[in-house]
Write a protein that binds this DNA or RNA. Structure first.
Lengths: 341, 341
DNA sequence: GCGCGCTGTGTGCACGTTCCCAAATGATCG
DNA sequence: CGATCATTTGGGAACGTGCACACAGCGCGC
């Protein structure tokens, strides 16, 4: 009961009905699609809605429909990753925007710890959201399976780990992208092309490595194990990876790095080691994250179409909520040439 | 009606009541505080809840109470800023966590454009959230006033622009932090200390500049206008600012930068210009954002206690929702010495 | 012994919406 | 011309919860 800004009772569907001279039922029908409503009534109701400033009470609607008309955005990453990687922000932004077009709010769920994971799982399976957008580069956690088994509509960003799982997902074409980038590096005349991979317990990480190896083999370049080190998409693991590469193959002349964030780390290490980029060593990243433009030299990278990815995630999730059977969506990547190659 | 994972009807308060052998009212009382309930009934109800796996239906509750038991996190920044600045992620994480303790979900609202701002304002004023956590470094937008006038509980991060506004906010002590950092730079023996300010149409930006000037004056060092350039907290504006500083005062020996992100840009420019940090030029940042550790050399900076800031924002907002009158909260900053000074 | 206050419990009502069904109207068809 | 059908409308019921109220039992003081 604050003294300032007392909020009055908002208009209900009753008020609109009275104002328009029709019944609640008719107003409701106008609100939900407008089938079996005469044009005259349609118009009268819309006018009444404008006049009263009526907005539907979502709680009342949800109570009767059983839907919440909201979805969760679940991020199962340690918080350092969430702080470091702007890709999450890009996805968040994209999903928020795509959902806004359907007037669906997004509930943010950050599961950094095991406790949070449990709490959030319970929240979701209690029916408080209609579905879940799952983002988790390192999807080794059981949360996807758990939610899927509970019958919660679910779309992952990137292919989840369990092969047997029937979880829908949206991803960039990792293998093809890796192939393009490796081909690009070879086309520059480089032959000692190293790679810093993503986490190899994730399908995405494995695919990017596979694409790299394929192209080298096709080009008749021997795949040297000392030229491949693994990382976890973090900047620091890029630094470390480049250090090991330089130690093992001092005369390498190119590196394909499985994420832009790691690529920044690679650039740091190369600079410390006195290597010029791209003259001595060409560096190719992956993602085209905001980090790619912020680095110097600016990164040549494989663009993941994050705006399309998030739009597709939302589209697939809504289809699934609508009861449709949905499949995986794979989107093409695109080579973006900048200063580092 | 998907074939897999059919969700059955969840238990209601009725089921719990029957299971426990009491009435709905008693169950409800146990749920909401447990006053006027005998220990025996208390126990029976709790056991029944555990057995049935009952979870309260928030929609039904909201319908009757008029509260939504959710809050919005509103970010009114262009999307580039959201992508670039990890501080937003830190705040987001902190608020999510603090709200989780109260079992309150967070609705993410990103208002990058004018259209989105309108849509979101309408959503909020329609009563779909109980309150709003507002984050907006450049709070020149009318959204705060608008929501506040509509009687929506609101807490801003950082002092909003309008002086007359009675909007509650939580902020770090900008002036004091700027004083500490400037004093630190002087203590290193530096006398030509430049500054890259934040946006000077925001209280935070103005305060940090004021602190800087105060300490210089107190120390008997003349405040030179050519040593002060303004930025907008972005990395790029740091680069540009440092370029201007070097052009105007080539022999400057320290820079106080009003954000870590800008400080990274300053480091880039200094390196390009061949200046060593900290030997030739000492650089002090502000925020202690994740960016401070990721830069090289690692940034000396003023730590904003983001975890406490977000916790306080949530505390104040909940108090305001509870009808209390709330005031501004100012939290102390702390000097974190690293490699750049 | 009466009234009063405090604790503990059950019940009716209301919140605002959607859905289902009945009924009215006009059009079409055999 | 009567019957069937599609369209349009209104009203009752239900969703699951919290709250106000009524009421019972008990102890206490006057």
């Amino acid at each position: 009961m604050s003294t300032t800004g007392g909020r009055r009772r908002p208009p209900t569907i009753h008020d609109v009905a009275r104002e328009a001279g029709v019944s609640r039922g008719t107003v409701s029908r106008v609100l939900n699609g407008g089938h079996y409503v005469s044009p005259a009534a349609q118009e009268a109701v819309n006018a009444a809605i404008r006049r009263t400033g009526y907005v539907v009470n979502r709680h009342a609607r949800s109570l009767i429909t059983g839907r919440s008309d909201s979805v969760g955005f679940l991020l199962t990453e340690p918080q350092e990753k969430f702080f470091e990687d702007p890709n999450f922000n890009v996805l968040l932004r994209g999903c928020t925007q795509a959902l806004a077009a359907h007037d669906i709010p997004l509930l943010l769920m950050l599961a950094g710890t095991e406790d949070e994971r449990r709490r959030i799982t319970r929240y979701i399976t209690s029916g408080h959201v209609d579905g879940v957008l799952l983002v988790s580069s390192h999807s080794g956690n059981p949360v996807a399976e758990e939610l899927s088994e509970a019958g919660v509509p679910l779309v992952a960003c990137g292919k989840p780990i369990g092969l047997g799982s029937k979880i829908s997902y949206v991803a960039a074409d990792d293998r093809d992208g890796a192939r393009d980038m490796t081909r690009h590096l070879l086309s520059l005349g480089r032959r000692r092309v190293g790679m810093v991979t993503g986490p190899l317990d994730t399908p995405g990480g494995v695919e990017r490595l596979a694409g790299y190896k394929e192209v080298l083999t096709e080009a008749g370049v021997e795949v040297d194990d000392r030229l491949v080190v693994s990382g976890d998409y973090s900047r620091l693991s890029g630094e470390r990876g480049a250090e090991r590469l330089l130690a093992q193959v001092p005369d390498l002349d190119a590196v394909f790095v499985a994420s832009d964030l790691m690529a920044r780390g690679v650039l740091t290490t190369l600079e410390r080691a006195g290597r010029r980029v791209p003259e001595d060593v060409a560096v190719g990243g992956f993602d085209d994250s905001p980090a790619a433009l912020a680095s110097s030299p600016e990164l040549t990278t494989m663009r993941q179409p994050f705006d399309r990815i998030s739009a597709e995630m939302v589209r697939v999730l809504l289809a699934q909520i609508g009861g449709e059977d949905t499949a995986a969506v794979i989107l093409p990547t695109e080579l973006v040439k900048r200063e580092s190659t």
